[in-house]
C-alpha cells in the first residue's frame, strides 16, 4: 500500500478534504488509474498538471516508475524554471 499525500488545496477539493490516503499500486500508471477511479478528476488532474514525489524524489510523467510496498507518494504541482 502506497501512502498518498495531498496537501495542495486543488487536490483536496477532489478528495473530499482528505489529506492522505492509501492506494495499492505497483507503478505510477497503476496509481493514477486507481486514484481516478476513487476520486474522479484527480487522476487526470495529476496526469496533466502535477508532479509526483516518490519517496522524496520528484518525478514528472514517470508513468512507468515503480512503487515499493510502502512508498510515500506526494502530489505536488509541476515545476518549471527559467
Amino acid at each position: 500500500m502506497a501512502l498518498v499525500i495531498a496537501d495542495y488545496a486543488d487536490c483536496r477539493a477532489l478528495t473530499g478534504g482528505l489529506r492522505s490516503f492509501e492506494v495499492e499500486a505497483s507503478t505510477v500508471r497503476d496509481l493514477l488509474q486507481q486514484i481516478e477511479a476513487r476520486f474522479p478528476g484527480l487522476g487526470d488532474l495529476i496526469d496533466q498538471r502535477m508532479a509526483i514525489a516518490i519517496d522524496g524524489v520528484i518525478t514528472q510523467d514517470a508513468h512507468g516508475a515503480a512503487l515499493a510496498p510502502h512508498s510515500e507518494v506526494v502530489l505536488l504541482p509541476k515545476i518549471g524554471g527559467g
Binding site: A53, D55, G56, V57, E72, V74, L76
Partner: peptide, 17 residues
C-alpha cells in the same frame, strides 16, 4: 535552528533526501 535537513518533510510535500 530551523533548517531543513534530510528526512524533514519539505513544506511543498516530499521528504528531503
Amino acid at each position: 535552528k530551523n533548517a531543513v535537513r534530510n528526512g524533514v518533510r519539505a513544506p511543498y510535500g516530499p521528504v528531503y533526501k
